[in-house]
Computed example of a mutant assay.
Amino acid sequence: MATDSRVDFRERSLQGLWKNNPALVQLLGLCPLLGVSSSVVNALGLGLATLVVLVCSNLLVSLFRRTVPDAIRLPVFVMIIASMTTCVELVMQAWAYELYKVLGIFIPLIVTNCIILGRADAFASRNAPLPAILDGVMMGLGFAAVLIILGGLRELIGQGTLFANMDFLFGPTAASWELTVIPDYKMFLFAILPPGAFVFMGLLIAIKNITDARLEKARKASQDTPATGSKRVRVTG
């Protein structure tokens, strides 16, 4: 049983972080992904909010999966997601109000994020709480990772800085975290605006596809090598 648990953890992790990444493979949640990721702090804030909603929603959907009739399954899932989103929104208003004002409408729009509803219906409603939580964590981390990478690229190329305005999320002590990578940098507005988000997102998807193709080629080569080697041994004998 312990071995099965480890295999499942590894597979769930690979699915969420790489193989079935919700942003790079499923192409879900692109509206907030492209709209908010103009800086690291914006991306991190939305990524954490989405992660919390996803994990909590998966847990509740899994707990009530046997008691919710199929006829009202989706409305109940939406209500659960909306409740979790409201809780996260209130917490952000209380503890990170400046960031909440920056993210604006994208926090309430977590309710309509296809990643959360899709995982609730496709996985959490059919599995026990622990696998559902694990799936939520890994899918949320995969989405947040793409958000942060995209935000870092756009902030660096657009403004020449990294980790600007981190005090919006972590308080006044984080104001000194800003790194000026390129001094006296003239802003590259294209990278900060939505068209730049589309370009950088396309580059990330292309990099993943190229990496997957090379890994698959290397895997096939490693499978062919022993057979070739064994033939050579027989011929020499």
Rank of each mutant, 00 (worst) to 15 (best):
G229F: 11
I110M: 10
L150P: 12
T211A: 13
P75A: 02
L204Q: 11
G29P: 11
L63T: 02
A145D: 01
L99Q: 09
I105S: 07
K101Q: 14
S39T: 11
V235T: 08
I157E: 03
L44G: 06
M138R: 10
I105W: 04
L44N: 07
A49K: 08
L27H: 10
L24K: 07
I81M: 01
P183E: 04
G152R: 03
A124M: 04
R219Y: 07
S62I: 14
T3Y: 11
L130P: 00
L90N: 12
D135F: 09
A145T: 14
M79C: 15
Q26G: 09
M187L: 12
K208R: 15
R73W: 14
T85W: 09
F188Y: 05
F64L: 13
R10A: 14
Q93A: 03
L30S: 03
G142H: 07
C87N: 07
P131Y: 04
L153G: 13
G35W: 05
A128F: 05
I149N: 02
S83W: 06
E155R: 01
R119C: 01
D167P: 09
P183A: 01
A128C: 02
G118F: 10
V137W: 00
G229D: 09
K220Q: 14
L141M: 14
L48A: 12
G152A: 15
E89G: 09
F64M: 14
P194L: 05
F188S: 11
V61R: 03
V181A: 12
P22Q: 00
I149Y: 04
N113P: 02
N127F: 09
T211K: 01
I148H: 14
T173F: 15
A128K: 10
G196I: 05
T67Y: 14
